[in-house]
Amino acid sequence: MLPYFQAINDLALGQWMRTEIWRVPAVEFVHLIGIVLLFGSLFVVNLRLFGLVLRTQPVAEVAQDVAGFQKLGLLFLLLSGPVLFITSAVKMYNTGTFWWKMGFLILALSYQFTLHARLVRKPDVDITPTGARSMAAASLFLWFSVLLNGMWTLLS
């Protein structure tokens, strides 16, 4: 697989990214804004499922109200992430935490938009409060695993 990563690394976009010093931190800035928007919404919704914040508002309402900015955050992340990947694809190939991050990302995305999405749409049906709490904890666990492995990739 390494030749493919080498080819990605050599793409014009990657070369362009590496030629001037401000380009990588600028894209990392977009990535961080995405992280803030996504994780902010995850805290709000999951802590609401725990009953720790905004207890007077229904879960579905809270989830609906932050959904737009959650998707905006994800959009920032999914646009800036591939650019950062192309910039240093060979390093990514050789970094174990990058592969872990991608694994957790697939899990987190599929969980967030299926089981978790269904839970926050009808929070009081078919699920006990303990079940709701476990599902909130699972969402935070998966996304923080993505973040931690991403940080470790950056720092290695």
Partner: peptide
């Protein structure tokens, strides 16, 4: 560095949704 980014998600993440609410976006019904 990792702790700094985790702290950022907590602080800036919650501040952002309060600021957005002040501007009339996001948690508008709360």
């Amino acid at each position: 560095s990792i702790a700094h980014v985790m702290g950022l998600t907590l602080a800036a993440g919650s501040i952002a949704y309060l600021d957005l609410r002040l501007l009339g976006f996001g948690l508008r019904r709360s």
